[in-house]
């Protein structure tokens, strides 16, 4: 339980720091970079190395490449949809989230 709480606190803190950076930086297109900051990875990889060693963390990073490709497709679709359609941003970003899952599953199947 202690590990879960520690992980939660680390994750919340790292994600919040990158989110605040994204809030205060201008122009908006530059601040947007921080929407794809490696926040969860930074919160997780150190713990993985501590618990399982470098090779385990390297394997996680290898899979992360696929997750990041899915992220690229997801945010590109989101950007287009926000320009093209009139649905609120939260609705658009959440409704398109299955794209991330679909792409990541597809890439994972192709890679294994």
């Amino acid at each position: 339980m202690g590990e879960v709480i520690f992980r939660f606190l680390i994750g919340g803190t790292v994600v919040s720091v990158f989110a605040v950076l994204g809030d205060v930086l201008r122009p908006k297109s530059f601040a947007g970079l921080f929407g794809a900051a490696p926040s969860i990875a930074l919160a997780t990889l150190g713990l993985m190395v501590y618990q399982h060693g470098n090779q385990y963390a390297a394997l996680e990073s290898r899979s992360m490449v696929l997750g990041a490709c899915a992220f690229l497709i997801y945010v590109s679709t989101t950007s287009y949809s926000l320009r093209r359609f009139s649905a609120p941003t939260l609705v658009t970003t959440l409704a398109l989230l299955p794209i991330w899952f679909a792409v990541v599953v597809g890439l994972y199947k192709l890679s294994t």
């Binding site: 929407g35 969860i40 990875a41 290898r62 899979s63 989101t78 959440l94």
Partner: peptide, 20 residues
């Protein structure tokens, strides 16, 4: 780790940030 690693690039905070 192969499945867990996929979620290191999950767009966790993106919807909340864009909506903000």
């Amino acid at each position: 780790p192969l499945v867990g690693g996929l979620f290191l690039a999950f767009p966790a905070i993106f919807p909340a940030g864009a909506s903000l």
